[in-house]
Amino acid sequence: MNLREIVDQLQLEVKANEGSLSNEVTGGYASDLLSDVIANAQEGDLWVTLQTHQNTVAVASMKGLAGIVLVNGREPEADTLKKAKEESIPLLMSALPSFELIGRLYKLGVPGMRT
């Protein structure tokens, strides 16, 4: 499944890099500790978080993540937006809280673990 389909189905707001929505999403990861994401997220994951700091973009780029979804309607900080554009990392936002959003992603077929 690509990001475009997820954005449409879950009515995510695209904050940066509309042009990269063809990114293939192969899984999902949820964490608000960036050290944990560095250790455990996998390439192609869509990352669900409430952290809005610009380091999220660096971590997503380093790990080859498909994109970042901010939850609870949290707006990215200005330098986070700028960095997302520089690094071509899709930055999305949902009004939903994490648990609800992750449940809906799972229903759409985004797996938490690859078997």
């Binding site: 994401v37 952290q51 700091h53």
Partner: peptide
């Protein structure tokens, strides 16, 4: 430390 530090929360020092 693995909690409440800049490195645990943000991965590295910006």
């Amino acid at each position: 430390r693995p909690s409440f530090s800049v490195t645990s929360q943000l991965g590295f020092i910006p």
